[in-house]
Simulated assay, not measured.
Amino acid sequence: MTERLPLFPLGSVLYPGLVLPLHVFEERYRRLMADLTAGPEPHRFGVVAIRDGREVAPTGADAESPALAGLGPDPHRALFEMGCVAEIAQLQSHADGRFELLATGTTRFRILSIDATGPYLTAEVETVEEQTGPEAKVLAAGVERIFRAYQKRLAGARESSVSGTQELPDDPNILSYLVAAASVLDTHDKQRLLAAETASDRLRAELRLLRREAAVLAKLPSLPAVELTRQAFNPN
């Protein structure tokens, strides 16, 4: 299924089922939110990660186009191909035009074409269906085990000194996205997890990534874990 969505480029990755807090202050995104809320519910937009993980200063013709501001002249090259639909759950508007909102990731999409002629980017996108894949339950059990150990290392605590355990979802798809969101990884790694064809593929990749990260943490006893933990749950 295809549809047209307004795009909200970010320096981070949104996953289905995860919550995204946003403070909207730039003019082009104020306009996006105003247009969305003037229409019928649900109010939905597409979140897509910027390839270099941050916006760049506009120059030349780019500076004259609000939709392209900070992305360079070619949004196809500046943005990843796959993103996630965000549905607004809470919205507060301010007298000065700013918005504070909470949105929830719903479904993945693949960008087919981008229109930069308006005040903000819009795109024709196709929905990417979720697939579980083979051996998902077995892989999920392995990811859960290593993720718990990874969290404890990240918190700077010995496994034996940590009391209580966080409840993790049984569904392999949901677990795969939660682990992807909560792990301290760079944008490219996080994007590869979003783009995985099946939950099994995502979980298999997470096993490799978590083992890699756990090995790094084991060699860095003075790692500023508080800052890393904050980054893991901060989408901006």
Rank of each mutant, 00 (worst) to 15 (best):
T117Q: 12
G118T: 10
A136P: 02
T122P: 03
E135K: 11
A103I: 10
P172C: 03
E197P: 09
G156K: 08
G156Q: 08
T187H: 05
A157N: 08
E197H: 13
A182I: 00
A181I: 00
E135Q: 15
S163M: 14
A180R: 01
T106N: 10
S176I: 00
T132N: 04
I174A: 13
L168H: 07
S161G: 12
D201A: 15
V125I: 14
L154T: 05
S176Y: 00
S163E: 14
Y177L: 07
V179G: 05
A157Y: 06
Q131M: 06
V128K: 04
D170H: 10
T104S: 14
L178C: 02
E135N: 14
R158F: 14
Y120H: 11
Y150I: 02
V125Y: 07
L178V: 10
S200G: 04
L178P: 00
L193H: 11
G118K: 10
A182Q: 09
T106M: 11
G105I: 03
A123I: 05
A103V: 07
D186N: 15
P172A: 05
A157E: 12
G142H: 12
I111V: 15
S163Y: 13
R148M: 04
G156W: 09
E130W: 02
V184S: 10
R108D: 07
E135F: 10
R145H: 12
V125P: 08
G164I: 09
P169E: 00
L203R: 01
A155Y: 06
A182L: 13
E124D: 15
R148I: 05
T122L: 05
V138L: 13
A140S: 11
D171H: 12
S183F: 03
L121C: 12
P119E: 13
Q191K: 05
R153T: 02
Y150G: 01
T117A: 15
E197Y: 09
V162N: 06
A141I: 02
I111H: 01
D201I: 02
Y120V: 09
E135P: 04
G164V: 08
D189Y: 08
A140V: 08
Y120Q: 11
T165F: 01
K152G: 01
S200F: 00
G105N: 03
K137W: 11
